[in-house]
Design a protein around this nucleic acid. Sequence first.
DNA 1: TCAAATATTCGATGCGCATCGAACATTACG
DNA 2: CGTAATGTTCGATGCGCATCGAATATTTGA
Lengths: 117, 117
Amino acid sequence: MSELHVPAIDTVAIDAVLAALADPIRLTLVRALIAAEDWTCGSDVLRSTGITIGRSTLSHHLKVLREAGLIQTRVQGTRRLVALRHDDLTRRFPGLLELVAPPAAAPTEPGTSTPTA
Amino acid sequence: MSELHVPAIDTVAIDAVLAALADPIRLTLVRALIAAEDWTCGSDVLRSTGITIGRSTLSHHLKVLREAGLIQTRVQGTRRLVALRHDDLTRRFPGLLELVAPPAAAPTEPGTSTPTA
DNA sequence: TCAAATATTCGATGCGCATCGAACATTACG
DNA sequence: CGTAATGTTCGATGCGCATCGAATATTTGA
């Protein structure tokens, strides 16, 4: 079991983070990971969003997010477990995760509307 | 004198804001406007950044920023004065401006590292 | 009314990026 | 060792977007 390389959080620029979050699919993935709050299988977090894309495309987006410093990846058997770098991001960019967090983040109210533009 | 139309701040989605800030030139313009803190001539704020692009390109970027809810424009004679929607943005997206603010914006502490990639 | 200054709009162009499918890699399990 | 499962890499493709130049407003001032 090993960890895929990620940039040190101090070397991560907000410019790269914003560029990574510009893509709607990557933004959705990050939001799902914020909600997950723990290691998750990459393809599972994709399925949880309802988005349907090819495996290679998902792999590409996860790579972009990893190299942008947003997520980390752990190899477990034939699977890849991904997780948001929650602590690192909160320390380096306070307020960032709250900013991109799901707009209707009401855990006790699943029926709320999601005014995502 | 008139004001160009801007979207109501409540209708602005963070998704659109992030997409607008993904472009390096637009990000630079926003940072210059944060530093300006007041109405500024569009071409002046461009010159202050040192970026050299055509007039039409600048006009395009300002339009994107305006429609994304980040700036507002006032017509004064043959000029266009632009300003960041500072209060609106702070109210709707707390922490956003601090996040994208110039990395080395420490007036009293010039010794901090500037990890701009 | 004409000319100058400033900015927008329009059409075209080129590049970057998201996407896909196929081939390859890695690990688990029989 | 061979097969299945998962994921990455590679090459190609298509679209969106940033960019530019020319043409077009709009306002000012002589």
